[in-house]
Amino acid sequence: MTTLLRDVYNTSVEFVRTFGAFQLFSLRLIRYSPGILLRRFDLVIKQIFNTGALSLVIIMVCGLFVGGVLGLQGYSNLARFNAEDSIGVFAAFGLIKELGPVITALLFAGRAGTALASEIGLMKATDQLSAMEMMAVNPVPRVLVPRFLGGVIAMPLLVAVFSTIGLFGTHLVAVELLSVDVGAFWQQIQITVDMDDINEGIIKSLVFGVAASMIAVWEGYNAVPTAEGVGRATTRTVVITAIAVLVFDFMITAVML
């Protein structure tokens, strides 16, 4: 009985410790960020390419199909109320406010977050980070901060691309395939969607970008420096990012409503 209590106590303390360490780590990343942004923007550009440009294909393909599915599902349900014309609004709200940011963040975690975590974890496992420290180069601003900033900058752009392509996917299905009137489709979107909705999407994408990048960098930096440890860090990146994104999504939506 006492061992069980001790275990619970130790686990709780360890959890709080990890959480606190993560906060301190976040503060360190943010403290170095302005300097890197101003002086070593070339490093950031390389990471925007790695996390953003290389994720474009998966984002665009997924966006197109998510939009198409919204078109099909929305049509079959709205047609019952003779309100097929509202399908544009249905899809636009869904994409801009929820699906765009959330699915992009999940895809980002799978495509870019895992790459970041395993890259940094492998650097650690092969003692590259220690070598940097030996050369009096601090690996946090040199390796971690550019990757973090690259993700933060890339995410809102990826979300915008996803939502736009998704809307065109809906257009393709609803207008070209199911012959909803194209004027009504876009007219209804323009009447109903306003700047607040776009802003909600942008705020979400910024928060998700910070969360996903920070978790990936943290997991990689704290990976156990073995082959197994790097693999575990990669898995944890996806799991924790997914949970964080969905929890944040709920909180932001609750606040914005």
Binding site: F49, L56, L157, A160, V161, S163, T164, I165, W186, V193
Partner: peptide, 30 residues
């Protein structure tokens, strides 16, 4: 090539953002 790729990506993202904010598109294809 990295710089060109990044530039294209950022331009595409900005374009998408611009499209979303203005919502004006070639919807008028009567």
């Amino acid at each position: 090539s990295v710089e060109i790729g990044t530039g294209l990506f950022v331009l595409l993202g900005m374009g998408a953002l611009f499209f979303l904010t203005t919502q004006t598109t070639g919807g008028d294809d009567f």
